[in-house]
């Protein structure tokens, strides 16, 4: 089975040339339909790795392949199409405060130019799935942290991405909501989406054992094991 993510000696510098390297010589692969926990202490480079994976930055060196496309050499105009196949749950949600929960979730579909009728049906169903049917017209500032996180998750999965990356998706959720989210992610994974979740929640990892990538000081110190 082809790898959805393939890293070979990948390094990342935010400032090209003299800047410090925040990721060093990362080499790993995640096959299609795979599930990975991304673990490591704060400052280990988890968010930087996720930024590479959702194409916010390009690697400074090495070879990074996402969804079969080599990222370093790909033309800039090819990236938006690739990004639409990647769902992202940001640690800070990154919702648009002036839009309703409905419009926030609908955003990826509208950007992709889907018909409005289909958008309405899909978004309504998705908001029902994450338990926010009663909050469709609410704007993010009117929602609790947990509700905002669920909107962010709904937005990440609404377009049925091939790859889903999530940065601390349970950070603002209580245990019950975190479990519900895990069921959602596992359901996506069962349907074929490759999932990579960065978390500090060791309890969650223990309850949902899966292969783990462990980072420390920008280096991959473990790729394997379960939980």
């Amino acid at each position: 089975m082809a790898d959805v993510i393939r890293c070979e000696a990948v390094g990342l510098q935010y400032v090209r040339g003299d800047g410090p390297e925040v990721l060093h010589d990362l080499s790993f692969g995640v096959p299609e339909g795979g599930f990975r926990w991304l673990l490591g202490p704060s400052g280990a480079g988890k968010t930087s790795l996720l930024r590479l994976l959702y194409l916010a930055v390009r690697p400074s060196r090495g070879r990074l392949e996402i969804l079969g496309t080599e990222i370093a050499g790909v033309k800039r105009r090819a990236l938006p199409g690739l990004r639409r196949r990647i769902g992202v749950v940001f640690q800070d949600f990154r919702l648009l405060a002036h839009l309703s929960a409905f419009d926030n979730v609908a955003l990826p579909l509208r950007i992709a130019g889907r018909p409005e009728g289909q958008i309405r049906a899909d978004v309504t169903e998705m908001l029902r799935w994450v338990g926010l049917s009663a909050k469709t017209a609410s704007r993010p500032p009117e929602l609790s942290g947990g509700e905002q996180q669920r909107v962010a998750i709904a937005r990440a999965v609404i377009a049925r991405p091939d790859l889903l990356v999530a940065d601390e998706p349970t950070g603002n959720l209580d245990e019950a909501q975190a479990e519900r989210l895990m069921q959602l992610l596992q359901e996506m994974n069962r349907l074929g989406t490759t999932v990579l979740v960065a978390t500090h929640n060791e309890g969650l990892v223990r309850r949902h054992p899966a292969r783990t990538l462990r980072l420390s000081h920008g280096r991959l110190i473990a790729d394997g094991g379960v939980g």
């Binding site: 916010a56 938006p80 990004r83 639409r84 992202v88 990154r94 648009l96 950007i111 992709a112």
Partner: peptide
């Protein structure tokens, strides 16, 4: 700036 960054990360093209 922030809103542009968000729609950009969701796959919006420069043309969009």
């Amino acid at each position: 700036r922030e809103a542009i960054g968000i729609v950009h990360s969701l796959g919006a093209t420069d043309g969009y």
